[in-house]
C-alpha cells in the first residue's frame, strides 16, 4: 500500500506546494519571457528568511512579515536584474546562480544572531497556526497532521490564485509583450516598448511568486534552513516546469505533483528492493542519489526529445531562441 499512499501524500504535501510556486515563478521568467533565472532558490530564501527573521528577532506580526518577505524578493530582483537584463541571456543565468549561492553562504555563516547558521530560524509559525481551523482535530487525516492540512489548504489556495493571475496576465496585452520579447526582443524594441522594463517586471513578479513558495515551505517545515535553498532547489523546480511544459499556466502544478509522486514512488520502491540487494548498495543515501540521477537524466531527455513537456505546445515555446 505504501507504494500508492506515500507518493500521493508527498505529491500534495507542503514541500510540493513550495516547489509548485517556485516553478510558477520560473514559468513567468523562462516560459513566458525567456529569462534564464537559475537562482529561484534565492527568491524563496530571501522571502522566507525575511519573514522568519522579522517575526522571530524583531517581533513583527505575521502579515507585515509576509509583506516584508515579498519586499525582500523585489529588492533581490532589482539586484539581479539591473546588471544583467541588458546583456545576453546566459549572463542572467550566471548572475542569478551566483547571487543564490552568495545568499545561501550568508545565511549559513553570517549574522548568526539572526540567521542561526545551519540550524536555521524557527519559532515563527505561532500566529499562522493560531488561525488553524483544524487545530482541534484528533490524530491525522490521510496521514497529514492538522498543521500540514492547514498549510496545504492555504498553499493550494495560493496556487489557485496565482494561476488565475498568471492566466489573466498572459491573455492581456502585457502578456503579449512578454511572449514577444521571448521570441525577438529587438522587434519589440523597434515598436517602442521598453524591453528592459518589461523584463524587470517579469523578474519581479516571478520572484515574488518564488518567495511565496518560500513562505509555504517554511510554514510547512516550521523552520527556515539555508541548505533548503541550494542550487538543486532551482534545478528541481526547472525540471518540474519542463516536465509539465513551459508557458502553460497549470503545467508547473501538474509537473510538480507528478514529479514528487514519481520521486516518492521510486524512493519507496527502492527501499523495498534494498532488503533483497546485498550490502549497502541501496542504503538511504544511495537511494536518494539514484532518484536524483534519474531526475538529471529525465531533464536531459525531456529537453532533447520533448522540450514542450507533457502538456506544452512545441510551436509556442521558444526554447531555441537565443
Amino acid at each position: 500500500m505504501d507504494l500508492i499512499t506515500t507518493p500521493l501524500h508527498d505529491a500534495f504535501a507542503p514541500v510540493a506546494i513550495s516547489y509548485v510556486l517556485a516553478a510558477m515563478g520560473l514559468n513567468i521568467h523562462y516560459g513566458y519571457t525567456g529569462l534564464l533565472n537559475f537562482g529561484q532558490a534565492a527568491f524563496a530564501a530571501a522571502g522566507s528568511y525575511a519573514m522568519a527573521v522579522t517575526i522571530v528577532s524583531f517581533g513583527v506580526p505575521f502579515i507585515p512579515a509576509i509583506l516584508l518577505g515579498l519586499a525582500a524578493s523585489v529588492v533581490l530582483s532589482l539586484v539581479m536584474g539591473v546588471p544583467t537584463l541588458r546583456l545576453r541571456a546566459d549572463y542572467l543565468a550566471i548572475v542569478t546562480i551566483a547571487v543564490a549561492e552568495i545568499l545561501r553562504l550568508l545565511f549559513s555563516t553570517s549574522f548568526k544572531k539572526y540567521f542561526h547558521a545551519r540550524d536555521g530560524v524557527s519559532g515563527f509559525t505561532g500566529t499562522f497556526r493560531s488561525w488553524n481551523p483544524f487545530k482541534d482535530m484528533e490524530g491525522t487525516f490521510l496521514s497529514f497532521s492538522a498543521n500540514d492540512l492547514w498549510v496545504m489548504v492555504v498553499g493550494w489556495i495560493i496556487v489557485a490564485l496565482v494561476s488565475t493571475l498568471v492566466f489573466l496576465l498572459m491573455r492581456s496585452p502585457w502578456g503579449r509583450v512578454l511572449k514577444s520579447i521571448r521570441e525577438d526582443e529587438d522587434a519589440v524594441r523597434s515598436l517602442g516598448k521598453n524591453v528592459y522594463g518589461y523584463k524587470m517586471q517579469a523578474l519581479v513578479l516571478g520572484g515574488m511568486i518564488g518567495a511565496m513558495g518560500g513562505f509555504v515551505g517554511a510554514l510547512g517545515l516550521a523552520s527556515v534552513q539555508p541548505d533548503t535553498f541550494n542550487t538543486d532547489f532551482t534545478f528541481i523546480a526547472f525540471t518540474m516546469l519542463i516536465l509539465g511544459g513551459a508557458a502553460r499556466v497549470l503545467s508547473p502544478a501538474v509537473g510538480a505533483v507528478l514529479f514528487w509522486g514519481v520521486l516518492s514512488f521510486m524512493s519507496v520502491a527502492l527501499s523495498e528492493l534494498s532488503d533483497i540487494v546485498p550490502g549497502d548498495l541501496l542504503d538511504s543515501n544511495r537511494i536518494g542519489n539514484i532518484r536524483f540521477a534519474v531526475v538529471g537524466l529525465v531533464l536531459m531527455l525531456l529537453m532533447i526529445y520533448r522540450p514542450q513537456g507533457l502538456f506544452g505546445d512545441r510551436k509556442e515555446i521558444a526554447i531555441d531562441a537565443r
Binding site: 489573466l168 496576465l169 502585457w174 502578456g175 513578479l205
Partner: peptide, 12 residues
C-alpha cells in the same frame, strides 16, 4: 496601451 501595464493587464 493601458493593457500593456502590469497592474492593469489582469483586469480585462
Amino acid at each position: 496601451q493601458l493593457g500593456e501595464k502590469m497592474w492593469a493587464g489582469w483586469l480585462p
